[in-house]
Amino acid sequence: MNIEAVMTAILSAALLSAVPLVLASTGEAIGERAGLLNLGTEGIMLVGAFSGFWVSLRTESLALGLLGGAAAGCLAGALFGIGCVVIGADQVLLGLGLTLAGGGLTAFLFRELFGSSQPLLPTSAGRPFNTLAEHLPVIGPGVFGQKWFFYVAWLIVFGAELVMRRTTFGLRIRAVGESPQAVDAVGISVTRTQCLAATIAGCLAGLGGAGLSVMELGFFQPNVTLGLGFIAIALAMLGRWTPWRIAVIAIMFGLLRGLGSGLQLTRWDVSPDLLQLLPYVGVIVALILTGKGLRMPSALGQTYAQRRRRRPATGSATQE
């Protein structure tokens, strides 16, 4: 067996499958930094996946499909933001509702539109760096042989890291999650910042979903994400809401999953079920090793007690 080829395939698949995860997770992290715990990520990913797929099918353009998915995600994220921040809805409740509604609606519409047929998108897409792939074994094709969206996605994550770390906007988002009164007192609209953060989070989750259906799979099926949204939430916390850390963790998660498949091909006689455990046990171990002293954004809607609506600078905004 060609070990090199297998390792390349595992690496390539791990990196590609990490894309929807890291996009959604980064989005969730941005939202949580702003104090919004969005359990609706799974639903938003599905909405993005379905929209992206449908647009791609209609326009015969993968790029437009991805944009469509992102747009749908933006919309959903904005609705979540407005719901929580302006209307004062309970974040957990609204998020769970989004997950159920998103999953149900996309499955329902898919059945209505396509019935028992399974349309597929063309799998070919440009691979801009393919020529570089030859130069390094394993890492070469794994990293450089990917389709173009792969690089766009990682660029976006990199951009998110920059924005959160270096820009005023990023600072505002983080401040709103830590101490809304302080932001309020300075005269910055807490509402606007949070809604924007929620929209961005939704956008990224939608793009992640579209990435899955349009780029990675080339088709949509009801519940195609199979819990990826919840894993994204978990990784956002594990990665301390920092995009670069999340990126590393997502890659490791993907690699551990691939390792499970790869090990099945060896002579080692372990049950496939136990091998599937690797990534999940890995997360727990990582948490135990690094999780102590994990400081969450102070105003993250964690307890069931609802966060008060932030009112503009009348001085009466309260925090729990």
């Binding site: 067996m1 390349t8 395939a9 595992i10 195609v224 999953r257 691939g258 091909l265």
Partner: peptide, 18 residues
């Protein structure tokens, strides 16, 4: 049965294995 993404990854792996 419905894990299409997993199926794609695993199939890619076995194809790479020859």
């Amino acid at each position: 049965y419905d894990d299409a993404a997993g199926a794609k990854r695993v199939t890619e792996t076995v194809l790479a294995a020859g």
